[in-house]
Every structure is written in structure tokens, then in C-alpha cells.
Design a protein around this nucleic acid. Structure first.
Lengths: 238, 238
DNA sequence: CAGTGGTCTAGACCACGAT
DNA sequence: TCGTGGTCTAGACCACTGG
């Protein structure tokens, strides 16, 4: 016995599969019918229709753009966090158009977790960079980067929307010696949710990264929130 | 302006934080108040209460046990997919009690994706093992393992609930040379959802793994579905 | 058996996006 | 301004769990 929300999910999942295979004139510009249209079509209610849409969202088959509608999710960016390939190159290799927007830049004391990870003492401050990255115009990554101020004086503002790895190498002679990545499924709220056009509490993939240089001195602490349907991690080993 | 579901979320998130810090007599045995109790407490409706609970679930702060109730999520298992530490050792190191249940064992042709990954031709078959793994009695991982029948004849049934890595080393002289892991946020349905006490469409962390031996011959294909609040991946590099 | 969550009905009003 | 999704009300019945 199928429940109604699963029925609707299956129906849409089939249309999406056809659309992705290039066989479908369903969906103009990847936009799904409005929730109210689906309600009519299935003689159902918005609760049930939204249940179905939420399931498809969880699977990563569709995504929402806040109050604009539901869209078929493009193929995922495949990303190896242990490789140091930068975002622009990675996107280009996978035929996607990347963009980066610097949202804010501050010099602050910083949260305890960050200070500890970077081994800061007394009055040492951190530079906090907040950036939003997009693929083909769709925001997919909200990231906050913390750098010890002392290690990176006079950051070149003009370059903060480009690859930081390259900037750090070229202007500060950074040589990465080690990197820790922590990956978990989590949820986004407030500024993160709004920036990514998601609703409060939407699931995401959270990556926390600490980078070390020289004799294992931490020089960078990152928090990344990925729109979960936009990414797949690839981790080779040995 | 806070919406009601966020208010309820925040209220519960605070209680959960206290409970986890050991300061709270809230929640007996980690069980949250029933949805209907929360409805009364907040003069709200189940829709709104469930919105709040779903958000907490997405964050990994609570989990549901199908039709039994909502529970505070224990600390996550930290897991490095590129290390070959087996599940039992890993759990023990983190003070958790592991268990494995073999759900089914078959010899079949297998799905196309699997056959391709394993490089099977003509009538070669695969052994399909389905297992459920638990931590402290809570199911956290549903996995399907595919092995080429020709490479692993006469599998020792008695050992299929233990570490396969150890079994393969000891009885088939397998030497892993390489491994690919693909990680994505996805959703569970049907048998997977039921086995994990989740509802259809609940989010999960999906890991697809291919292992190679000798001169890059694939000998194992795995699909893992993790209850997302039960796991955090740790990926060191360089 | 009672109590839980799972699913669903049939509406309503609001905030925001596009135009 | 109109259409979209976001949030919410006030119920209902069902499936399953546990005592």
C-alpha cells in the first residue's frame, strides 16, 4: 500500500529522470509545477504535496529557491577535500560556471572553537572572511574562513574572492603540511539559510577544516555549508 | 520575529544541550516529551511541533525511532573511511557497543552499476550480503556488500557478521591496493528505512565504496546508508 | 489495551519574488 | 499586484509499539 506522498514522489521522480535524460518536455527551465498545481492534479493537500517535495529534496533530486519555487537539481559537483584543487578549476573541469562573492571581512576575537583550533593566545585576533560560492548562478556553498591576523597582515582585499590557497602561497609563502576535514550532515539557519536560498532548518553538508603548515602549526580554520544536493565527495585512499 | 517552530526548536535545543552536559533531569532515558504534550505546552499544533522536531533531526540533535518517539542523539561515531580500522575496534575505541546482524545473503546476477564496478562479464555472479549494524542497540548503518562469486567461493557463513576485511585477509589472502569512497547526502526508503527505524524519505549519509586488490582489480562494492546523526567523517590528508 | 508517531483533510494568512 | 512558497490552525484516522 503506497501512501499518497510516496505516490506523488514517485510520479515526480520519474518525470525528473526523463528530464535529466533529455527526453522530457516536462518542466520549463527545470522548474517544477507549483505546489497548488500539484494539489489539484493529485486531488490532495499542500501538506501531502510538500511531504513529497521534501523527500525529493532530501534525496537531492530537486532543490528549492526560497519562495521562488522548486527546481530539478543539476548534476553534483564531485569534490575531493583532500586534494588542493581550487574551486574555479574544479568547477571548470566539470563544465560548471563558478562565482564567488565576499560577504564580509572582519578582524575579531573569534569564537572559542576557532581560537583553540588555531592555538591563539591572549589578545591575538583572527580575520574572518565570509564568502558565498555559486555554480551556474545557483548558490551552493556558504563558507566562513578564519585566519590568524599575525600570520596574514595586510590581506590583499582585491584577491579575497579568488583562490585563497593560491593567495596564501604567493603572498605569504604558505606550505601546507597537513589538513583535517570533518564532515557531517547538519542543518542551516538564518544568514546561512538565507544566503543559500534555503529555509531555516534545511539539511546541508557541513565541512570543518583545519590546515597546518610547517611543523604542524594551524594557519586556517574553515566552516563550509554545502547545499547537499550540489555536492558529492570523492575520497580516494592509499 | 521568530516563527513558532523555531521557538520550539530553540527551547528543545537548550534542554538537549543541558541534558548532554549532564545538568538536566529533563528527558528520562533521552526520550523527548510526546508530540501531543509539546502541542499543549506551546498551545500549538502537531504540524508546527513536528516542523521543530524535523529541524532538530536534520541537525542531528535528535533522532526518531519509528512510532516509538523522539530521542536525544548520542555523540557521533567518528569514522575515517580511508583507514581500514574495522567497525568493532572503532566502536570500542569510542566507548560504544557495536553489533552486526546479517539480514540476507544471496548469489545473484546483481545490478548493472555493481557488475560494471566489479568488471563482471557474461554469467559471472555476485554474492550480495545485507547487514545492519548498531551502536548501543540503536541501528545506525544499513549496508549492502557485493563480492564477485568467483573470487570468494564457499564464504564462511559463520563469519559474515564479523569483520569482512579480516575474513578476506585470512581466508582469501586479499591485499587491498586502493579504495574509492563516494559520499553524498541522500534519503532512505522501504527496507532501508524500516531497518533503521526511519520513515520513508528521511535523510541519510550514503557512502559508495569500491575496493581494489593487486593490480587494481575491483573485488568489493559497498553501499552504506548511515543514520546521519550517528556519524561524522574524519578525513586527514597529506 | 492505551499511547505513540505517520499520514492526511481543508482550509487560512503572511512574506517575498517577479513584473 | 499577483503568484509563489512559508507557516499555521484544528482537527481526523491509521499503523504500530509496548505493557
Amino acid at each position: 500500500m503506497l501512501s499518497a506522498n510516496i505516490e506523488i514522489r514517485d510520479y515526480l521522480a520519474n518525470l525528473i529522470a526523463e528530464y535529466n535524460a533529455g527526453n522530457g518536455g516536462h518542466f520549463t527551465a527545470g522548474r517544477l509545477p507549483s505546489e497548488r498545481e500539484l494539489v489539484e492534479q493529485f486531488s490532495s493537500t499542500r501538506i501531502t504535496v510538500r511531504d513529497a517535495l521534501t523527500k525529493l529534496e532530501a534525496e537531492g533530486l530537486i532543490y528549492r529557491s526560497n519562495r521562488r519555487g522548486w527546481f530539478v537539481a543539476p548534476s553534483r559537483l564531485v569534490y575531493d577535500p583532500s586534494s588542493r584543487v581550487n574551486f574555479y578549476l574544479l568547477a571548470a573541469q566539470q563544465n560548471k560556471t563558478p562565482a564567488t562573492q565576499l560577504i564580509s571581512q572582519r578582524c575579531i576575537k573569534g569564537p572559542a572553537e576557532t581560537r583553540e583550533a588555531l592555538g591563539l593566545v591572549a589578545k591575538e585576533k583572527v580575520i574572518e572572511l565570509v564568502r558565498l560560492r555559486s555554480l551556474n548562478g545557483r548558490p551552493v556553498l556558504f563558507e566562513t574562513i578564519y585566519l590568524p591576523e599575525q600570520r596574514f597582515p595586510k590581506l590583499n582585499k582585491a584577491r579575497l574572492e579568488g583562490s585563497l590557497t593560491v593567495l596564501m602561497e604567493e603572498e605569504y609563502a604558505v606550505q601546507i603540511c597537513h589538513e583535517d576535514n570533518r564532515i557531517r550532515v547538519s542543518a542551516v539557519y538564518d544568514q546561512v539559510a538565507e544566503s543559500l536560498s534555503l529555509i531555516n532548518g534545511a539539511p546541508c553538508l557541513e565541512v570543518t577544516r583545519i590546515r597546518y603548515e610547517g611543523d604542524r602549526k594551524a594557519f586556517e580554520f574553515d566552516k563550509e555549508y554545502w547545499v547537499h544536493s550540489a555536492i558529492e565527495l570523492s575520497i580516494p585512499s592509499k
